[in-house]
């Protein structure tokens, strides 16, 4: 039988200052603890994904394309080298969506654990920021692993290639923050993201200059690239990994686009989370 005495001492032990300054880190800690439950799966996906894609499309399909392209190559390089930065950014986006959409849908609709968090001094803003930070960690991990696989495949030709890590991470978190905000609005768990995956994510993947330069697509389809974080990040990635031609203006445009999405995504996530929890 219990001998413990339940005290009422919160006035002495709860540290308000600490909660205000570190609250979102505590939320991120909870998310990371949950990720650790299936860390081997996350790592396996992070390695298998680049190996399979780079091998099958980069090397396999690449052999045909390189043969017909001749010594000029695609954009001056082997197809593998051309394709890899786009796949890198795609993996970043996929990882970010996993860690922003799923916890947000469960947090509000399924397990409703966001309401549990919000019953403590933790605010809606801190929950939104914490979920974002945890997805950021996942994205960074995924991108670094992917980058080393690219290195092993000989797909990195420039001394600036390591800078493709942050630009791919940018694509991931920019996209992830937006989907986190959208997920925060949803009451129904499934339908939206079934539609989202089929009709938004898939076309973006296919029409963002992933498999061939955007300029070789019909002009009436090129706008898809312009609204796609994947294309903006891929352009930067190609410049950084093999020296794809990129003007300074365009480089800045790509960066500003991704940063703007990120800022908007975080801003709206925080706002949507706070409003939904206060209902």
């Amino acid at each position: 039988m219990s001998t413990s005495n339940i005290r009422q001492g919160s006035l002495e032990i709860v540290d308000q200052e600490k909660i205000i300054s570190r609250g979102s880190l505590y939320v991120a800690q909870a998310r990371l603890a949950a990720m650790m439950k299936w860390v081997w799966m996350i790592l396996a996906i992070a390695v298998a994904n680049p190996v399979l894609y780079l091998l099958s499309i980069g090397v396999g399909v690449g052999a045909f394309i390189d043969k017909s392209a001749g010594p000029a190559g695609i954009d001056g390089v082997k197809y593998l080298t051309f394709l890899a930065p786009a796949l890198l950014a795609t993996a970043a986006i996929q990882g970010a969506i996993d860690e922003s959409v799923f916890p947000t849908l469960e947090g509000f609709n399924g397990w409703k654990n966001f309401f549990g968090m919000n019953a403590t001094p933790i605010s809606g803003n801190q929950i939104a920021t914490g979920v974002f930070l945890a997805s950021f960690v996942r994205v960074v991990g995924t991108v670094i692993i992917y980058w080393f696989v690219m290195l092993a495949f000989g797909a990195l030709e420039s001394s600036k290639a390591w800078l493709a890590i942050p630009t791919a991470v940018m694509a991931g978190v920019a996209f992830g923050s937006i989907t986190q905000a959208i997920a925060g609005l949803l009451k129904d768990e499934n339908m939206f993201f079934v539609i989202f995956n089929r009709f938004i994510l898939m076309p973006l993947f296919l029409f963002s200059g992933t498999f061939y330069p955007l300029s070789s697509m019909p002009s009436y389809l090129q706008w898809i690239g312009w609204i796609s974080p994947l294309w903006h990040s891929t352009e930067l990635g190609r410049y950084l990994t093999y020296g794809h031609a990129l003007t300074q203006t365009m480089a800045i445009t790509h960066m500003v686009f991704l940063l703007t999405l990120l800022v908007l995504g975080i801003f709206f996530s925080r706002r949507i989370f706070t409003q939904r929890l206060a209902k």
Binding site: A33, A34, K37, W111, N113, F115, G116, A119
Partner: peptide, 12 residues
């Protein structure tokens, strides 16, 4: 706070 639905962190 002990809410009507146990909103525990199911993954932990």
């Amino acid at each position: 706070v002990v809410p009507q639905q146990d909103n525990l962190d199911m993954q932990l």
